[in-house]
Design a protein around this nucleic acid. Structure first.
Lengths: 160, 160
DNA sequence: ATAGATTGAATAGCATGCTATTCAATGAAC
DNA sequence: GTTCATTGAATAGCATGCTATTCAATCTAT
């Protein structure tokens, strides 16, 4: 039986981790000349779409924890990618606003990301690429749903 | 043209990052009762297959940086999952050796990982699951090859 | 044997992710 | 209009990943 063996090279989780690290490394390499890190790029993608977002908005759109976003925004402010201006309608909110530097990075950074995606998927046929993206979305959706529903247990049954 | 827009929800890199974080969170949730973290589980997978491996061996098998492995092994030693015994044939080497505690975790931990993978892929047909794993391997391979070949450049052409 | 290169490992410093906690501002209820 | 809950954000502390550096042990070539 397969109850003893566990081949990491056939494990979706292991492969997803490998892929994500390789994507991040590849993107990091391409955007390093822009003095930009991958997580910062993700935030910029949202701000390029709509400027002056609150931290809570960015958290919702990128699905990371609030504390993670707080730290990323602090680094981005430090690096001159954003300014954080207090909202006039809500004293708790600090809007993340693009600097000129960040606006200038839009073209080269998205080009780098596109190049990385193209390189990664070069070994798949166009049909496969579509199927691959669709399946990744489906798998992520499934896990998000499970997460937001309620952690059942260790793997076996349990009462709660 | 699509030269301005970049939809993260159609970006393989973004989706890979999401998937990897969701996998890690799901696995972490399942193995937390075992007092085990995902990266430690990966190391244990190799040690369960073959005990008493050097740090360099583990680095090669799991494709992480040597410094990353050094830190992970230090935490595993701290947590009583491994002992590090000096090699008798090479004074530089410290072999990572399973403790009884780590040996006892094999069954429940692999069951948890299998459960996480099954949950994640539950929305795909069996045929799709095979294709998905195959494509993830292909994509990772492509990026590994590109990485190990030599970083070309930012995205445009360059002379080197 | 020894000089120099290579190899195994540790360490420093940083980015990104997480959970848990705290604080201040806002909103709701009485 | 105070009290209480909610909400937005910051902070502390940790795991995992990275690069760069350093050190000691080993191996190679002379």
């Amino acid at each position: 039986m397969s109850t003893e063996i566990f081949d990491k090279d056939d494990s979706a989780g292991f492969l997803a981790n490998q892929m994500a690290r390789l994507f991040a490394a590849g993107l990091a390499r391409r955007i390093r000349p822009l003095d930009l890190a991958p997580a910062q790029f993700m935030v910029l993608l949202e701000l390029w779409r709509q400027d002056a977002l609150s931290q809570a908005e960015l958290v919702a759109r990128l699905d990371v924890e609030q504390a993670t976003m707080a730290n990323t925004l602090a680094r981005m402010e430090r690096d001159g990618l954003i300014q954080r201006l207090p909202s006039k309608t809500d004293g708790r909110v600090r809007l993340a606003c693009l600097t000129d530097r960040a606006r200038a990075l839009r073209r080269p950074a998205t080009a780098a990301a596109r190049a990385q995606n193209a390189e990664a998927l070069a070994g798949l046929t166009p049909q496969e690429r579509g199927a691959f993206l669709r399946m990744m979305k489906a798998v992520a959706d499934t896990m998000r749903t499970a997460r937001d529903a309620g952690p059942p247990a260790t793997g076996g049954a349990r009462d709660e």
